[in-house]
């Protein structure tokens, strides 16, 4: 296992140790340990059912672990918080299936994600300040949807929705981004562009990327963690991990 020494604990942005969770007797995660350093970008791979999505559910508060520690920023216990509190701490999530608000315009989607007070009173009497409008425009530019800002998000193509969701993540300006299969359903060109975008984001954010596409991972060029049956099977640079016999075995079957 790759559990960090106790001294490292406070410096890690995200720290998972001995996390297990089961659904109706099925152990989706067993003794998972993982640390992400501030500013780090990490790719997570693993076959179906390895527990990747469940891991994200645990980090974002959707699922509570049966046992284990989940710490954020060295001092906040994420297992005690709900989704909204965790999101407001600075953890953003992009879902495997792109989920945008279909009946809102693209601009409104970004507006809703924009870092701002989330309480009822201040959302009711909200006015978009000029600086905030500029930030929205910037993000629309980054995700190349500036011209389509008034269209309903529901009318976007799959790839555009993926980008819109990444744009929403940017607007949230989180400390840590969890990105679930950003390249799924994209053309090669789009995949490459997404990789560039993610690398750009990773310059001032910590990012966890879950992906199946090895080419995409290679393009990111970051440390890889391989999950299998709910725990870490291997960790390291992609070349080293893909040479690992057990990883090959898991991916190709016996």
């Amino acid at each position: 296992m790759n559990a960090p020494a106790p001294g490292q604990l406070t410096s890690s942005l995200l720290y998972l140790d001995g996390v297990s969770v089961s659904f109706d007797g099925f152990k989706a995660i067993r003794g998972l340990s993982l640390t992400i350093e501030p500013g780090e970008m990490r790719a997570i791979i693993g076959p179906n059912g390895a527990g990747k999505t469940t891991m994200m559910d645990i980090i974002t508060g959707k699922t509570k672990p049966d046992v284990g520690t989940v710490m954020f920023g060295g001092k906040v216990d994420l297992t005690k918080l709900d989704e909204a509190a965790i999101a407001n701490l600075g953890i953003g999530r992009k879902f495997q299936k792109p989920t945008v608000f279909d009946f809102h315009t693209i601009e409104d989607n970004i507006l809703l994600a924009l870092k701002a007070p989330r309480d009822v009173r201040r959302t009711l009497f909200w006015n978009t300040a000029a600086s905030q409008q500029k930030r929205i425009d910037d993000i629309l530019g980054i995700i190349k949807l500036g011209d389509a800002r008034d269209r309903l998000a529901g009318s976007l193509s799959h790839g555009q929705k993926q980008w819109l969701e990444i744009g929403m993540l940017l607007a949230q300006d989180p400390k840590l981004l969890l990105v679930d299969e950003p390249a799924a359903g994209m053309t090669d060109g789009e995949t490459a562009e997404t990789a560039v975008l993610l690398k750009e984001i990773a310059r001032d954010h910590s990012v966890i990327v879950v992906e199946h596409d090895m080419g995409f991972i290679r393009e990111l060029g970051v440390k890889v963690t391989v999950l299998h049956e709910g725990s870490v099977l291997a960790e390291g640079p992609l070349d080293q991990v893909s040479a690992n016999e057990r990883v090959v075995e898991v991916y190709l079957g016996r």
Binding site: K62, D82, F95, V100, F101, D102, H104, L111, L112, T123
Partner: peptide
């Protein structure tokens, strides 16, 4: 209002809205 947009967002994708904080 923006609250109205949040409310519509809740109607269409409740869980996503929660993950936005």
């Amino acid at each position: 209002s923006k609250l109205g947009k949040v409310v519509i967002a809740i109607r269409d994708a409740e869980s996503r809205t929660r993950f936005l904080g």
